[in-house]
């Protein structure tokens, strides 16, 4: 790089580096969409207990994991070769952290899918089942909002997400209350499976909030947004 020349002819420099950063940004979106598709499968498996669709979700998660590995390697490569600083460094570091968030959401999604395969058991408590469906819808919506915020660098939406979701916490509290009150021969089995699914959904919402924090840090550079962590 020649600063003298750059001063003479204003314009973009380090084109390959710039293109790679743009690729990282886009690949995060692609991976986010893959996770989103699996969340949609999760909702359907929860609703129907369809084992074929569950298989599909498991296979898709392998792709998500592979993408996590390859993109992490790409980030390390950029760090080693290009020595990014300032907003470029924040982007690469944020991508690394967002990758593991996405991967984690994918895992939690599978946890719900696996619990949902005991469909006959879950529907034995219609109220808990309804709450789970509501939580699944909200967790998916929150995650989708996080993807949208990332794609459009929407600081306002990011701040909203980072504040967390009050309603999913309430739903989770209602779920626990319902499960504790269950009686009958299958009560323990129903409660355990429903609780596993409910906890995972609540965690997915938490990760959407963390994604909001990560984006706030990326945009503002304020280290205060690094502190945000899962509440539970």
């Amino acid at each position: 790089m020649s600063p003298a020349d750059s001063a003479d002819q204003p314009g973009p420099l380090r084109a390959t580096f710039g293109a790679e950063l743009e690729q990282l940004r886009l690949q995060i979106e692609v991976m986010g969409v893959m996770v989103d598709q699996n969340l949609e499968r999760m909702r359907q498996v929860l609703e129907t207990g369809d084992p074929g669709l569950a298989e599909h979700a498991l296979a898709a998660d392998d792709d998500i994991d592979a993408m996590n590995v390859s993109l992490t390697e790409r980030c390390y490569d950029v760090l080693a070769r290009e020595n990014p600083v300032a907003s470029d460094l924040r982007l690469v570091v944020s991508v690394v952290r967002v990758l593991s968030e996405l991967e984690r959401v994918g895992d939690l999604c599978l946890r719900v899918v696996k619990a949902s395969l005991d469909h006959d058991l879950l529907i034995k408590s219609p109220r808990a089942f309804d709450i789970l469906a509501v939580m699944a819808a909200e967790a998916t919506d929150l995650f989708r909002a996080a993807l949208k915020a990332w794609g459009t660098a929407d600081l306002e939406l990011a701040a909203e997400l980072a504040a967390g979701s009050r309603s999913i916490d309430l739903a989770y509290a209602q779920l626990v209350e319902t499960l504790v009150a269950l009686r009958g021969p299958d009560a323990a089995a129903v409660a355990m499976r429903s609780l596993v699914a409910g906890q995972a959904l609540e965690r997915i919402a938490d990760h959407a909030a963390i994604l909001g924090s990560r984006l706030r840090y990326l945009i503002t550079g304020d280290p205060g947004h690094l502190a945000a962590e899962v509440r539970r």
């Binding site: 600063p3 020349d5 750059s6 420099l13 990014p84 550079g221």
Partner: peptide, 19 residues
Amino acid sequence: VFSNPSDERTENYVTGRFG
């Protein structure tokens, strides 16, 4: 300066991506 510079001209110079 190297993590979050205040001025856009500094940012452009330290990242080396705009001249």
